[in-house]
Amino acid sequence: MYFFLFHLAVVDIICTPTIMPKMLENLVTITSTLSFAGCIAQLSSFTWFLCTEMALFTVMAYNRYVAICYPLHYSTVMNKRVCCSLSTVVTIIAVTNSWVNIGLIVRLTFCGPNIMNYFFCEIPPLLALSYSSVKINKIMVFTADIFLAMGDFLLTCLSYCFILKAIMKIRTCEGKKKALYLLFSPHCGVSLLLHCYLHLHEASLQLCL
């Protein structure tokens, strides 16, 4: 549990400086500007860490599922090698998603009054400023929304359903309390995952309209 919580904390710590410094600068200066290169760098980092966070929530849910449903086999199933492999897979998925989105955005043409009513660079408002065809970009965003956001959310919910089912079979109140205690930290993360999923789903629908 603490292995993945550590990775989640590191991702959150690194993700914050990609948005907050520029946002604070814009609050204290008259002109709020950001270069195209800075926007791409910010977008690349944000999509990378957001995807990593969502995938980590799914892995953490699976980790709790093994710990509660198969406690005697936990140390064997979730050994150090498996944890490192899952962390590597999460990173590869996040990097691939980020690079594909950035590669599709870089090829677009931007000209004219490039003004966004957002405090950081995000894909939907950035695509709205392009004079090129953004059909492929919309397909990519919608695909990522389905397979990454919705997939992570459904897998996490499925793991929690099995976990709750296993908890209900525990006869002692003390055993149930210990099992629920193991779910406390990941539960906070799942709430954030739901918020991220709804945000991405809303953005995807806006692009399709």
Score class of each variant (00 low, 15 high):
residue 35 S to A: 04
residue 35 S to P: 06
residue 36 F to Q: 04
residue 37 A to M: 15
residue 37 A to G: 03
residue 38 G to H: 09
residue 41 A to M: 10
residue 41 A to K: 11
residue 42 Q to I: 02
residue 42 Q to W: 11
residue 43 L to A: 06
residue 43 L to C: 05
residue 44 S to K: 08
residue 44 S to M: 14
residue 44 S to P: 04
residue 45 S to R: 03
residue 46 F to R: 10
residue 46 F to A: 03
residue 47 T to L: 14
residue 47 T to M: 12
residue 48 W to C: 11
residue 48 W to V: 00
residue 48 W to P: 11
residue 49 F to K: 13
residue 49 F to W: 14
residue 50 L to W: 09
residue 50 L to P: 02
residue 52 T to K: 14
residue 52 T to I: 11
residue 53 E to M: 12
residue 54 M to F: 08
residue 54 M to Q: 10
residue 55 A to E: 01
residue 55 A to I: 14
residue 55 A to T: 13
residue 55 A to G: 08
residue 56 L to A: 05
residue 56 L to I: 13
residue 56 L to Q: 08
residue 57 F to A: 04
residue 57 F to H: 06
residue 59 V to F: 14
residue 59 V to S: 01
residue 59 V to G: 00
residue 59 V to Q: 08
residue 59 V to I: 13
residue 59 V to N: 02
residue 60 M to H: 02
residue 60 M to D: 03
residue 60 M to Y: 06
residue 60 M to F: 07
residue 61 A to L: 12
residue 61 A to W: 14
residue 61 A to D: 02
residue 62 Y to P: 09
residue 62 Y to E: 07
residue 62 Y to W: 15
residue 63 N to I: 13
residue 63 N to Q: 13
residue 64 R to E: 02
residue 65 Y to F: 15
residue 66 V to R: 13
residue 66 V to S: 00
residue 67 A to M: 10
residue 67 A to C: 03
residue 68 I to Y: 01
residue 69 C to I: 13
residue 69 C to A: 03
residue 69 C to T: 04
residue 70 Y to E: 00
residue 70 Y to D: 00
residue 71 P to N: 08
residue 71 P to L: 11
residue 71 P to D: 04
residue 74 Y to V: 00
residue 74 Y to K: 14
residue 74 Y to F: 07
residue 75 S to T: 11
residue 76 T to P: 06
residue 76 T to A: 11
residue 77 V to T: 10
residue 77 V to W: 05
residue 77 V to F: 03
residue 77 V to S: 02
residue 77 V to M: 01
residue 78 M to S: 02
residue 78 M to I: 07
residue 78 M to W: 10
residue 79 N to F: 09
residue 79 N to H: 09
residue 79 N to K: 15
residue 80 K to N: 12
residue 80 K to V: 12
residue 80 K to P: 12
residue 81 R to G: 00
residue 83 C to H: 12
residue 83 C to E: 09
residue 83 C to N: 07
residue 84 C to E: 05
residue 84 C to D: 07
residue 85 S to T: 15
residue 85 S to F: 14
residue 86 L to S: 00
residue 87 S to I: 11
residue 87 S to E: 10
residue 87 S to D: 10
residue 88 T to W: 03
residue 90 V to T: 10
residue 90 V to P: 08
residue 90 V to F: 08
residue 90 V to K: 06
residue 91 T to H: 11
residue 91 T to P: 14
residue 92 I to D: 05
residue 92 I to P: 09
residue 93 I to T: 09
residue 94 A to L: 01
residue 94 A to D: 04
residue 94 A to F: 00
residue 95 V to Y: 12
residue 95 V to I: 15
residue 95 V to P: 00
residue 96 T to F: 12
residue 97 N to I: 02
residue 97 N to W: 10
residue 97 N to Y: 13
residue 98 S to Q: 10
residue 98 S to W: 13
residue 99 W to G: 00
residue 99 W to C: 02
residue 100 V to W: 04
residue 100 V to S: 01
residue 101 N to Q: 11
residue 101 N to I: 12
residue 102 I to R: 12
residue 102 I to A: 01
residue 103 G to N: 07
residue 103 G to V: 13
residue 104 L to S: 03
residue 105 I to K: 05
residue 105 I to W: 06
residue 107 R to K: 07
residue 107 R to I: 12
residue 107 R to W: 00
residue 107 R to M: 09
residue 108 L to P: 05
residue 109 T to V: 15
residue 110 F to D: 03
residue 110 F to S: 05
residue 111 C to F: 10
residue 111 C to S: 08
residue 111 C to L: 14
residue 111 C to W: 07
residue 112 G to K: 01
residue 113 P to V: 10
residue 113 P to R: 01
residue 113 P to I: 15
residue 114 N to I: 14
residue 114 N to K: 12
residue 114 N to R: 15
